[in-house]
Amino acid sequence: MPEPLLQVDAIDAFYGDFQALFGVSLSVETGQVVAVIGANGAGKSTLLKSIAGLMPPRHGEIVFDGHNVAGAPAFDVVKRGIALVPEGRRLFPSLSVEENLLIGGQSKRPGPWSLQRIYALFPVLAERRHLPATSLSGGQQQMCAIGRALMSNPRLLLCDEISLGLAPIIVRDIYARLPDIVGEGLSVVIVEQDIVQALRAASQVYCLQEGRVALEGAAKSLTRERISAAYFGV
């Protein structure tokens, strides 16, 4: 069997003295979509931040493409091919849509994603390319945040709560683009509170509960009862 693209091995993460992750492990194959679900405060965003280099784990390893990147600075993690779509989108309000996208390409990694490719994926961004990013609707801002991450030509895309605060029709529209993204050879990790959407999009699911992996398995094999028990800790 080939080695996974990403192997998170028993990481612990802390905010000061508060421990947020307890021995969390996760594996992502090339071209795979993995969903991480769980209630608020379960540690989902912390896990993505640890992988992206924003919150170095205190213990454990994060092996990406054969290299241990645990503790590496975020700019080095991006150069290796990991990009994060952060919760809340975090666009630069003083910049235009196109300027936000161009910032994502500063790593100069080679690959298929360019302004033209992003505009083909999200045509509404092309129409509004010269407008301030703050003028976009919530769904359009999420598309811009995804486009900015793709501009770094990653091999692994981390998406943190991409449906949060968005209308269901907008969420379906965004998820409908996922096959085009994966079709370019990317692996994707989605942090999602919408369990139905997560199970529909991913082949593998991890459920976190109070900073620990409470359940993992193939999406098609997990029953609603097992997910509920892991999600709520009952």
Rank of each mutant, 00 (worst) to 15 (best):
L208G: 04
Y15M: 00
A13Q: 11
L164Q: 14
L186Q: 08
L95Y: 05
I82V: 15
E29S: 11
F75K: 05
S203A: 12
V36M: 00
T30D: 08
P56V: 03
V85A: 15
H130W: 00
I118L: 15
A133H: 03
F14M: 00
G31K: 06
F92E: 04
V182A: 04
H130S: 04
Y231A: 04
V63R: 11
I174S: 07
G71I: 07
D9F: 06
A214Q: 03
K220T: 12
F92D: 06
R109A: 15
G88T: 06
A42M: 03
F232R: 00
T46V: 07
R89F: 09
F14N: 05
V205N: 02
Q209W: 07
L91M: 11
A42E: 02
G165I: 06
D194I: 01
I118N: 15
G43N: 10
G71A: 07
Q116G: 02
G23M: 07
K79Y: 10
Q193F: 09
R128H: 14
G139D: 14
L95M: 11
A218Y: 11
S163F: 12
L125Y: 01
D160V: 12
K108I: 04
F75G: 02
A83H: 09
G88C: 03
V34W: 07
G104A: 15
H59C: 00
A72C: 08
L5Y: 02
L131G: 01
S94M: 04
P179V: 00
I62Q: 05
I162C: 10
F14L: 07
I169Y: 01
D160H: 14
L125R: 10
L47I: 08
P73E: 08
A52K: 02
P154Y: 12
E61P: 02
G165Q: 14
G81D: 06
Q197P: 00
L125D: 06
G147F: 14
S27F: 01
G217W: 10
A167H: 04
A229T: 13
S25D: 14
L178Q: 08
Q19K: 13
V213L: 05
G217F: 11
S107F: 14
L131K: 02
T134N: 05
E99H: 04
N153R: 12
C159I: 14
G233A: 02
S27R: 13
L166P: 11
L121Y: 13
M151G: 13
L157C: 09
G16A: 03
A230M: 08
L101K: 02
E216D: 09
G147M: 14
C207K: 01
T134S: 12
C207H: 01
R177Y: 15
D12I: 01
M55I: 01
L156I: 13
A145Q: 15
V33Q: 00
M151E: 14
A198H: 01
I162S: 13
L91H: 12
Y206A: 07
L158H: 07
I11Q: 09
S228C: 05
Y206L: 10
G233Y: 05
A70M: 12
P168K: 03
Q141T: 08
I62L: 06
P112Y: 10
T134I: 02
L199A: 08
G16S: 03
L199C: 12
S187I: 04
